[in-house]
Amino acid sequence: MEYFLNQLVNGLCQGAIYALMAIGYSVIVGVVGMVTFAYGEIMMIGAFGAYYVFQFVGINLPIALLAAFASSFLLGIIVYKLCYERFFNAPRHISLLCTIGFSMLIKNLVQIVFGPETKPVLNIIDNRTFNIPLGGAISIDLKLLQIVVMILVVVLAVTLTLFFNRTRAGVALRAVSQNKDAAYLMGINVKRTAMLGNCIGCGFGGIAGILLAIYYYSISTTTWGGFSMKAFAASVLGGLVDLRMSALGGLCIGIVENLGITISSATFRDVFAFGFLIIMLVLRPQGFASKKGNRV
């Protein structure tokens, strides 16, 4: 029981990071209108950006997060120029393959430039654990790390929502996501707005990347494809373009896979994640989103 509850907490925390990944992914899909397979590498670059801040500036979480956001944001420009801008009217598999190519490019370049070995990310957040009794003999362990991660995700999600609803650029982004032609007719620079949306999505991916690195105490150069697929899966669960539902999708995947491994071994983690996705899609082909209306 205690193990189960602890796994629930772990699931919540991991789910929160997945939720952040999914939000970023959904912003990209919503605004650009095309899916990406380079998202894992974008997260990796964000994580590396923050890693070098830790190396050269010292352990300063806000600056590191900013660096993660900025490096992924900049990479987002390149992705946009290479993989999307030309292909708005082309069949979808073309930009899809472009992003696959781009992901290979970044992955291998990073391995060449930064070295293929896994880099440790230690002591970023104090390794303290709170033991919270729940009455009776049952208690759960809550790491400071987990609390920080969850709070951060909530703050970021709220910030993004405010940005989309309260700022001019945010409203333009929503317009582009809903109808590119209409947005164009209203005088919005669609291509630039789409690029901005893509970059913001990438930036959130970058932050999720460093959070993952902190959570796992390391940055590898090879595991990001899996995270990219989780983000994709969570976003699909939420109906691809609905931010709140995507976040919920991410949370669900995190919880399901952490609870799943309580009844089997940790190697089956991804089986639970994707099994959950497939079952959900069979039951609800459009994901959690009830209507198409609720976009970005």
Partner: peptide, 26 residues
């Protein structure tokens, strides 16, 4: 193919991708 019959486009793709990953993990 069973879950993909109702699905289109990218939804179908993610199911096939997920299935392939599940096979690999098994």
């Amino acid at each position: 193919s069973l879950p993909t019959l109702k699905l289109k486009g990218i939804y179908l793709s993610i199911v096939t991708l997920g299935a392939s990953e599940i096979i690999r993990i098994i």
